[in-house]
């Protein structure tokens, strides 16, 4: 019997699978992002790819307050909703993280699935359920209703990000602070929150991005006046395949990249020590 090592063919095939096929898969994963960015600089009128020439005309069209008034309002609404959703999840999820860190493991195991459930549920189903109840109680779709929906659906992201950090915090740090005579408020402000900061930042980043991108909750909970950016883009795509959507995509991808690089700086484990 000869060992498979003596036969170079399977080894070659394996390498081709991992580095060849795997490499191609990575290209397939990233190519659409590159295509969306390059498309946004087209000088042409259509979505022909490769783009016909280079220009900033679609960015100009998008920034023009007269031609893109609706898009500006939609972007404003989306940013407002995302900011409020981050604030809401800070208020609800961060205390929950702190509280859970003080509870017995068995209690946490019992409560946690309940808090995290919105992450598994298709959010379209939740949007519909929230619409039915709001209507029942007498609330019409509005910006505030959308914010509440986003806090419920994305708050768990903040909880999960912060609790990953909370689990690593040595409980005797808070105890030491209390023993030294610090009030609970001082302990919270000077010890617990600074230790939790990286998790809270990561959570805020995730909630912001998800809220900005959300269609399925906003679809049901936002009213006609509160057009949000993804729904506006959806409408532009369905109606006319307006090339301004490419410019919007370019801006959104740029924003994601910037925030990712900043987050990497802030959250890089080597810099925490």
């Amino acid at each position: 019997m000869h060992s498979p090592r003596e036969n170079p063919f399977p080894v070659f095939l394996y390498r081709a699978f991992v580095f060849g096929f795997g490499g191609l898969s990575l290209i397939y994963l990233v190519a659409p992002i590159v295509i969306a960015i390059t498309m946004s600089f087209t000088a042409g009128q259509t979505l022909k790819y490769p783009p016909e020439g280079f220009s900033l005309r679609w960015y100009e069209a998008l920034l023009d307050p007269v031609r893109s008034g609706t898009e500006h309002i939609a972007a404003g609404n989306s940013l407002k909703i995302a900011a409020l959703a981050v604030l809401g999840s800070l208020l609800f999820a961060v205390p929950a993280t702190i509280g859970m860190a003080r509870m017995r493991r068995s209690t946490v195991n019992a409560l946690e699935p309940f808090l995290l459930a919105p992450l598994v549920l298709p959010s379209l189903v939740y949007g519909l359920a929230a619409l039915i109840v709001a209507n029942f109680v007498g609330f019409q779709p509005s910006l505030w209703l959308t914010v509440i929906g986003h806090v419920v659906v994305f708050g768990p992201l903040m909880y999960r990000a912060a609790s990953v950090v909370a689990q690593g915090i040595n409980p005797s740090l808070a105890e030491a602070s209390t023993v030294m005579g610090a009030t609970w408020y001082t302990t919270l402000r000077r010890v617990i929150l600074p230790l939790l900061a990286p998790g809270i930042l990561a959570g805020a980043f995730l909630v912001f991005i998800q809220s900005l991108d959300n269609v399925s909750v906003s679809l049901f909970l936002a009213d006609a006046q509160t057009t949000v950016l993804p729904l506006r883009m959806f409408a532009l795509i369905e109606e006319s395949l307006d090339v301004r959507v490419a410019a919007m995509s370019g801006i959104l991808i740029g924003l994601t990249l910037v925030v990712m690089l900043v987050a990497r700086r802030v959250l890089a484990p080597s810099r925490q020590a």
Binding site: P32, P230, M233, I237, L241, S249, I253, T256
Partner: peptide, 14 residues
């Protein structure tokens, strides 16, 4: 982390 709508748009182009 890129918006779903943006990725969908990219696929329309492709």
């Amino acid at each position: 982390l890129t918006s779903n709508v943006v990725r969908t748009f990219a696929w329309i182009v492709i």
